[in-house]
Each structure stands twice: as C-alpha cells, then as structure tokens.
Design a protein around this nucleic acid. Structure first.
Lengths: 236, 236
DNA sequence: GCGGCCAATACTGGGTGCAATGTCCGATAG
DNA sequence: CTATCGGACATTGCACCCAGTATTGGCCGC
C-alpha cells in the first residue's frame, strides 16, 4: 500500500511488463510487439500503449516506427525509480543488487547525518525522539518497531533538509525493506536502540562528525547482523 | 539531444505539463482537467491521457474517479528522475536547488572515487586517461574539453562498478551541466587538469583515501570558481 | 554487374466515440 | 441525527479509425 503500484488493469500490465524486462525474459534489443501483447495479456491497445509509455518514461523501452518497440540497454534504465527498484528487489534479489543498494546507503546516510547535525530543527528532533521511543518501548509490536525504525531513518535524512538526498534514502530504504524484514524476522539481532540513540544524541548536539560516525556504526552493526543470519541459515 | 525529450507531440505535451507543475503554475492539490487541456493544447484525449500517465509514473499527478486528476505534493515527486531534474534545472534554477545538487555530488563523487580506486579495471583506467588527454590537449576545442570532462567524471563513477551510484552521478551531472557551462563560458576558471590528474593517479595506484581526497579537492576548486564568477558577475 | 532511386509496406503516432467502473455526495428513511 | 442507498461524474478501458514515416526491397539506368 505504501508503494506506488498503479491502480487497475493498466497498473497490472505495467508491473507485468516491467518485471518481465527486469527479470531478463526479454533482453535489451529485443522487440516488444504491442499487438502481440494485446492478445497475450487480453487487454486493449489503449492499455498496452499507455503501459509502454510509462516504461518509456522510465527509460526501459524505446518505440520508433518501423523498428518496433524494443527494450533499451540496462544502463539507460532509471534504476533509481521507485518502481524499477521494487521490481528488481522482487525479481532479481541477487547479492550484487543488494550489496549495491547497501553500499549506496553506507555512503548517503552517514553524509546525511552529518548535514542533519548542522541543520536539524526542533521538529526534526521531536520526530526522531518519538520514533526512538517506540523502538525502545518493550510493549510495542514487532511491526510497530519496524515501522518506527523506518520513520527514524526517514526523519534523519529529512533533517538534512536536502530534497535530493532525502529521495535517495527513500528509494534505498524501500529497496532494503525486504532485507530488513528478513533480519527482524528471524535470528537474534543486536539490539539497535543504543546505536540509534547515539545518532540522535549527536544530531541533537550538533556534532556533525559524531553523527556521521554513529550512523556508520549503526549500519555496520546492522550489516553484521545480516551476514550472521544469511550465512548461518543458508537454507531457503 | 542527449537528454530524453520524448519524440512527437506527445513529448511536447509531457514537457509542457511537467514544466507547468515544476514551475508552480499549478500547485499541489489543484486539479488538472484532461478535457480542458485537450482544448487548450489543441491535442486529443489520447495524447493528454498518455502524458498524464507519464507524469503519474513520475509521481507528479494522481488521477482518480470523481476527484479528478490532481497534482501531488512535491515530496512525492520522483526528483531523481532525469526529466524532472531537467525541468527543474531549466525552470526553477534557484540557489536552493543548485546547492542541493552540488551537495549531493560532494557526497557521491568522493565516495565513488574511493570505490573506484579499489575496483577499477584496466579498461576504466584507459577511458579516464583518454578523457584527461583531451582535457590537457591545448588544441582541443572548448566543447571537446567540456565533453571530455563529463566523460571523465562518468568514467570515474563507472569504475566504482555500482550501478546505482553511477546513475546518481549521471543524474546529478546532467543537472549541473547548466552551471558548468556558465563556469566554462565566462570568467577565468582555475586550470583543472592537474586536479583531475591527481584523481586519476590515486585511482590507478589503488589509493582509496587519496582518490577520495583528490576528488574532494577537485570539487572544492570547481565550487570556488563558480562562486567567484557568480558573485563577481551578479548581473544578468 | 552495380549503385542509386523510388515505391510498397509495416510499424508507431494520433484521434474519436462509447461502455463500464468506482467513488464521492447528497437525499431520504429510520 | 445517523445510516444507508442511489445517482452523478470522472477516470478507465475498449474497438476502430486514418496519417506519417522509416526501412526495405525491387527496379531501372548506367
């Protein structure tokens, strides 16, 4: 519900074709005949056309007369697009993709914390404090804690007051959601409240270097937990 | 030409509506009546509908029955989308936007250089060397030098071998193109070849810390040049 | 025999009218 | 006063239409 799966049949077609391409069922350069799809998917021209337009907007296909509608090479896709990222997370959740994602987060989030320490408002701090309170609440449900964790990281980047940086975090966090669920779901994970509190304290104190270091520690800790679980329970 | 302005009338309508929204001519929450646009722009429903679908794919509008098609709040837009970024650079080129853009670059590119130092292949180094050679060539045209500069930075991030990071650089570099043109065009700018060479040397040597520092220096130098010119020639 | 020019063709691009669906609002009845 | 039902309106989806254009193959001339 939080994502942006378009509504209706059109949305289903967009998602279907998007996943088809991301999964590699149709390789770059290969044609994607609209009239064929029209029959295969049991929908009308309008739906197929609009779906292909959406994919074209994301740089995934290129339609021109006579040549047909072909899949563009992977490096031209809008990989940072929320939908494309989600399709990849669901269909191509290999190690390379997840490690790329984690790597970007390791870069963006500490830098964001550094800026947040310098620019946070009282409102930002209040949001962070509220989220942390839920995470530390022993009575809170697991879902509520996971949600609060997301809110915390979102608020942290919001406190940097840089729209583009905030979007990057948004997009990365969404992509890593599956991984995080895995970690929270099973196995003993390191209690992360103290690490989060360290981040909050440094940001509140306006300590840029401290905030950056605290976030680095936090991510490193989370990464260790993931490795411990994924290597320990290799089966399914 | 290098961007991705869609072709045909449809592309013109998408760009028009996109810029309309980015410019703030229609504020978030306001309706965007398809049939009215149909008449105003002199195009048919098909074009308007597909254009709105594209904008919906970028999170800029939301269409639902009875309520109509409304502009979504700014924080839900896909600001990292190449088209959205270009529309902003052209129509809302205020300081806040440009500084956000530069800030992200200051974060992404040094980190990218650090990774590049560890992962660069011989091919990566060759591309970097070729680009630098053109930049250092006294006989090269101004356009060729600018192009080579872009190629250098693109190759640097490509050498990090992280698809997502590379996309971010792509998107940021495109957004800063206008600014760079300004700097190259007028006023004395600091000769940037030595700074670029320092980056290349560090990456070639596999010196992660050195590469990161060299890029930081390079960006700081470029930033100083921009400030010198924009503050010196405030007119126009 | 080879090369350039021209026409047939097959695709996307753009347009129109209409049926269906879903949602919001208001009216009406309890 | 509230809850439920129905109607209206805007999007959604469908079928069919013609026009423009780029590519390809054939044809003609050299």
């Amino acid at each position: 519900m939080s994502g942006s799966p378009f509504r209706g049949i059109h949305g289903a077609v967009v998602a279907h074709l998007g996943e088809l391409i991301v999964r590699g069922d149709v390789s770059p350069g290969e044609p994607l005949d609209p009239v064929r799809l029209e029959g295969e998917l049991g929908v009308s021209r309008t739906v197929v056309r609009e779906a292909l337009r959406v994919l074209a907007a994301k740089g995934m296909v290129d339609a021109r007369p006579k040549r047909g509608t072909i899949v563009r090479p992977r490096e031209e896709w809008a990989l940072l697009d929320a939908d494309v990222l989600r399709w990849q997370a669901q269909n191509r959740a290999d190690d390379a993709f997840l490690s790329d994602l984690a790597e970007v987060r390791d870069i963006v989030e500490p830098a964001g914390a550094r800026l947040a320490a310098a620019r946070r408002t009282d409102g930002d701090l209040a949001t962070l404090r509220d989220a942390l309170a839920i995470m530390a609440d022993p009575d809170a449900s697991v879902d509520a804690v996971i949600e609060a964790d997301l809110v915390f990281h979102r608020a942290l980047l919001a406190a940097a007051h840089n729209e583009l940086l905030w979007q990057m975090e948004q997009v990365i966090a969404t992509g890593l959601r599956a991984r995080d669920l895995l970690v929270y779901g099973r196995g003993p994970w390191t209690e992360s409240v103290p690490a989060h509190r360290a981040v909050l304290d440094a940001v509140a104190a306006g300590d840029a270097g401290g905030a950056e270091r605290a976030v680095r520690d936090l991510l490193a800790q989370a990464d260790r937990d993931v490795r411990a679980i994924t290597s320990g329970k290799e089966s399914e």
